[in-house]
Simulated scan of single mutants.
Amino acid sequence: MTDRKPYRHRFPISIIQYAVWLYHRFPLSYRDVQELLQERGIEVSHDTLREWNIKFSPLIAEELRHREPRWGSRWHMDEVCTTVGGVRHWLWRAVDEHGVVLDVLLQRHRDTEAARTFLARLLGEFHVPETICTDKLASYGAAIRKLPALQEVHHQQVISTARCNNLVEQSHRPTRQQERSQLGFRKLKRTQEFLNLHARMTNLHRHTRTTVPAHIRRNNQNQAFQTWSTVAAGVA
């Protein structure tokens, strides 16, 4: 079997979705996934794995996002510096009180306008929270004052060294692991797509594992993977 035929004619959807799931669920490179599949008798190149991720990741992330419930009423927000293609960017992240990722966004700046953009993006997807927890970065307070919907929200500023915002700070760790496994991020659009699906997949396993009864967790996971299969089959 050669690589001359299109991959969608050679591999069943179950293998494609499994490969994409491995790449986004664990800190693995394309070559790591390639070796895991080879151990199961599946010969696929790392270039083909990259093509699968480019084609399927945005569609699956969007579908899973629409099937998530509206989460908690307390937002924890933080930003970390990362490099994409040799250019410094800021990765803005928001999680709820359960540690579930609400959204991630890469931006070039760390100012008031960047904070306002991220908050407006969150308000477009979630209900207005009761409390927003941030570090001492002044841009958060200035951005909150500029958004009328957040005027009544309690803004709690915490000290990073006191670990009061530990939920969101710990949420950065899987991203750092993925960044190391990929030897750094290279393209802005692909990195944003990767982080979107990575957050959705992390939520699927973390939230159902820690806060949902077992029988509901099984139903949610079955529904999520049925959705995954449906979306993958529709675009293959």
Rank of each mutant, 00 (worst) to 15 (best):
91 L>N: 07
80 V>A: 13
99 G>R: 03
93 R>W: 04
90 W>Y: 15
110 R>L: 07
110 R>N: 02
122 L>N: 09
120 A>T: 13
124 G>E: 04
89 H>G: 05
134 T>E: 11
106 L>K: 06
98 H>A: 11
116 R>W: 07
107 Q>M: 13
86 G>M: 15
125 E>C: 03
81 C>M: 13
96 D>F: 04
117 T>K: 10
99 G>A: 09
135 D>V: 13
90 W>M: 06
132 I>M: 10
84 V>I: 11
129 P>N: 06
117 T>S: 06
129 P>Y: 02
112 T>V: 11
112 T>R: 13
117 T>W: 01
87 V>W: 01
88 R>G: 00
122 L>Y: 04
135 D>N: 10
84 V>D: 00
132 I>A: 11
127 H>N: 09
135 D>Y: 07
110 R>Q: 10
112 T>D: 08
106 L>C: 10
97 E>D: 15
78 D>W: 03
120 A>Q: 15
122 L>I: 02
97 E>R: 14
96 D>I: 05
95 V>M: 06
115 A>V: 04
116 R>V: 06
96 D>T: 08
121 R>S: 08
101 V>P: 00
134 T>D: 07
79 E>I: 05
118 F>V: 09
119 L>C: 11
101 V>K: 08
98 H>F: 07
113 E>C: 08
114 A>V: 00
86 G>Y: 12
81 C>E: 14
106 L>Q: 08
119 L>K: 01
107 Q>K: 12
121 R>Y: 00
95 V>Q: 04
113 E>K: 11
86 G>F: 11
126 F>C: 07
135 D>P: 09
129 P>V: 01
135 D>H: 06
126 F>D: 03
135 D>L: 08
126 F>Y: 15
92 W>T: 02
97 E>Y: 12
90 W>A: 09
132 I>C: 12
123 L>F: 02
105 L>Y: 08
78 D>T: 04
114 A>Q: 01
115 A>Q: 01
82 T>L: 15
123 L>P: 00
88 R>L: 06
123 L>C: 09
131 T>A: 04
93 R>K: 15
101 V>I: 15
83 T>G: 04
130 E>L: 12
128 V>A: 07
124 G>R: 03
117 T>P: 00
82 T>N: 07
93 R>G: 09
104 V>C: 15
102 L>I: 00
85 G>K: 10
112 T>H: 01
78 D>P: 13
92 W>M: 03
108 R>D: 10
85 G>Q: 09
115 A>N: 03
102 L>P: 00
130 E>K: 14
130 E>V: 14
103 D>N: 15
102 L>E: 01
101 V>S: 15
97 E>I: 11
112 T>C: 06
78 D>S: 14
98 H>G: 10
96 D>A: 10
129 P>A: 11
131 T>V: 15
98 H>R: 14
133 C>R: 10
105 L>M: 13
95 V>L: 09
103 D>Q: 14
87 V>C: 05
134 T>A: 11
91 L>Y: 01
98 H>E: 14
118 F>A: 12
85 G>F: 12
134 T>I: 03
127 H>R: 10
131 T>Q: 13
90 W>T: 05
94 A>N: 05
130 E>M: 14
87 V>K: 13
92 W>Q: 00
125 E>R: 14
